[in-house]
C-alpha cells in the first residue's frame, strides 16, 4: 500500500465518523482496533506507555495535512483532526455496511475505553490470555481502571478475548 492509498483510507475512516475526531491518540487506537478486525490501513504499530501508537500513521497525518486533506487544531487538552470541507462527503462511499457500523461504534467510545481495549488486544496478540492478561493490564493501565469493565465487555464481544 503506498502513501496515497494509506491516506485515502484514513480520510474515508474520518469521513464515516462525520468528518472529524477529537484526539490524535484516539485516532491511533481506533485505526489499530480496526486493523485488528482485518480492515487494513497499512499502518505499523508499536506499544508505548500511552498504549498502541503508530509512527507511520503519525507521519501520514502530517502528509495529509500538507496535502490539504486534513486540518488539525487544538481542542481543549486534545487535538481535533478534521477533513477539510471539500474532502468530506458526509456519506462515505467506502467499505461495507458492517465495516461502517464498526467504525462508528468504536469511534463513539470514550478515548480511555479505546486505550484499554487496544491494550487488551495488543496483549492478546503478544500471547497473553486469561489471568495473565488481566494481571498485565492491571500493571500497565492501572490509572484507567475505571474503564476496565466496558473495555472487557467490548474485548469479549468484538475480539473474542476472555478474561478471568
Amino acid at each position: 500500500m503506498n502513501k496515497i492509498e494509506r491516506i485515502e483510507r484514513i480520510e474515508k475512516c474520518i469521513d464515516i465518523i462525520g468528518g472529524e475526531i477529537v484526539g490524535r491518540k484516539k485516532l491511533h487506537k481506533l485505526i489499530y482496533l480496526l486493523q485488528a478486525k482485518g480492515i487494513d490501513f497499512g499502518q505499523d504499530f508499536i506499544f508505548h506507555f500511552y498504549g498502541v501508537y503508530s509512527p507511520t500513521l503519525s507521519v501520514d497525518l502530517h502528509i495529509a495535512e500538507d496535502l490539504g486533506i486534513l486540518i488539525e487544531e487544538t481542542s481543549g487538552p486534545a487535538f481535533k483532526i478534521q477533513l477539510k470541507e471539500e474532502n468530506g462527503s458526509g456519506e462515505a462511499k467506502c467499505g461495507s455496511g458492517t465495516e461502517k457500523e464498526l467504525v462508528k461504534f468504536l469511534a463513539d467510545q470514550p478515548a480511555s475505553v479505546l486505550e484499554v481495549l487496544s491494550t487488551m488486544v495488543y496483549l492478546h496478540q503478544e500471547g497473553f490470555d486469561g489471568e495473565r492478561l488481566s494481571a498485565k493490564l492491571n500493571e500497565l493501565k492501572k490509572h484507567l481502571e475505571g474503564h476496565f469493565p466496558k473495555a472487557k465487555e467490548l474485548a469479549k464481544e468484538l475480539y473474542d478475548i476472555k478474561l478471568s
Partner: peptide
C-alpha cells in the same frame, strides 16, 4: 507528565511515566 490526551471525568490528566 502524561502529555497525551488522557483525562478523567473531571478533566484531570492521568498517569505519570518514569522515563
Amino acid at each position: 507528565k502524561n502529555i497525551v490526551e488522557v483525562e478523567d471525568e473531571e478533566g484531570n490528566q492521568l498517569g505519570e511515566i518514569e522515563t
